[in-house]
Design a protein around this nucleic acid. Structure first.
Lengths: 214, 214
DNA sequence: CCTCGTAGTGTTATTGACTAACATACGTTA
DNA sequence: TAACGTATGTTAGTCAATAACACTACGAGG
């Protein structure tokens, strides 16, 4: 039956306010951002203290002072509360900024190195903690790899666009291989508790990729 | 109150029968195998007909004529009913059978091509159907990639053992890149509904990998 | 052949992620 | 300030997965 809002006002819709617009820093927006951060922080804290599986969404919500329904209004799943997901646009921009005559693997390698450099300087320790949590938790690992697949597609498309061509199998393989190198490096980094440093591992991993043909 | 069986015979346990033994093709074993197959077939049929998410475990169990608990005694999760998982030992054997002086990428490439050749001849169409189902279903994709990670580790270990060395970052990168090429090929194959043929795509994908350094 | 241990299964109940429907509180806008 | 709409809470439900316990029948030893 869905007693859906029956479009009471026949006018062309008040076009309420928020369209694609950038900045209405109303009170509501602030509270939303704060609630979101609060949920995320409490979740991470509880996960690290008591483990991911044994921590329930209800507990997280209670700790953040909201109902469990509110949790799901902010995060589609329990897993999503751990993700970042803000890196992709940056990486795309970096790829597009590379010289056109560069080989695709070098392009990806340098873009990743630059992008990581930024995160690394600011958040190294947090990144390590989060990565370790994810690697220890099957559900989170699955989710991370799922996101990685999206990134891979994005990389392939960006590479293809830069070369004015369609996405070919070869493009996809390059993107997939680069991300495989990246995840291998990150995994090794987290397993070694942060040594050697990630940028070095990334260099090593991409070197290995580059010499596959020999 | 649990009127549990109170260990009537105090003797040192009759050491019943089944230890690590290989083949008692008793009536029980047959029924088990049959039940297992029945559940799997009904599950796949229902998934393809009504979709994975909308099909409940209870429905599958009912269709196979068992209780939903029995389902879970045969398969740890709803996802597991779609998996195969029998390929890894074969692939390891194939890797170990390759000549020692061969480069690691070539070794993996040839082992995969041979292993796939066997499956492909026997089960091509079933493989295509199952692959398409998996790719269309996030939960199954996640599960598949999870299994792939195990395979990757296995590959790296096998490669290292063959070279009498430890598992290095380089070894892991090779294994990861090879599996990235394989999944890219399989994905492309399933997206194209089986054309071009998978072995060709695998060749193409590995060629792309090999020329990454140029 | 008969008995009894036990493997295989069913029944029922519980936890926890996630969804839906409806009610309410409060920021926003006129 | 009045009207509107969005954020949240409450309540109730679905479904996967686990657990405790009971029943049945296979299958081996006496």
């Amino acid at each position: 039956m869905t007693p859906r809002r029956v479009n009471r006002s026949p006018g062309p819709a008040p076009a309420p306010a928020s369209e694609g617009r950038a900045n209405p820093p109303g009170l509501r927006e602030q509270r939303k951002a704060q609630t979101r951060r609060s949920i995320q922080e409490h979740a991470l804290r509880l996960f690290l203290a008591n483990g991911y599986e044994t921590t329930t969404v209800a507990e997280i919500a209670a700790a953040a002072g909201v109902s469990h329904m509110t949790f799901f209004r902010y995060f589609p799943t329990k897993e999503a509360v751990v993700e970042n997901d803000e890196y992709d646009p940056l990486l795309v921009a970096l790829i597009e900024g590379r010289p056109d005559d560069e080989g695709p693997l070098t392009t990806l390698r340098e873009a990743i190195r630059q992008g990581l450099g930024l995160v690394y300087a600011a958040d190294r320790d947090a990144l390590l903690v989060r990565t370790r949590l994810i690697l220890h938790t099957p559900a989170l690992r699955a989710r991370m790899i799922h996101n990685l697949a999206a990134t891979e597609q994005l990389f392939a498309q960006t590479l293809a666009a830069r070369a004015d061509s369609d996405v070919t199998l070869e493009t996809r393989v390059v993107a997939a291989a680069a991300l495989a190198a990246l995840t291998t490096a990150i995994t090794t980094w987290a397993e070694g508790n942060g040594t050697p440093e990630l940028p070095n591992l990334i260099d090593q991993a991409f070197d290995a990729l580059g010499s596959l043909g020999d």
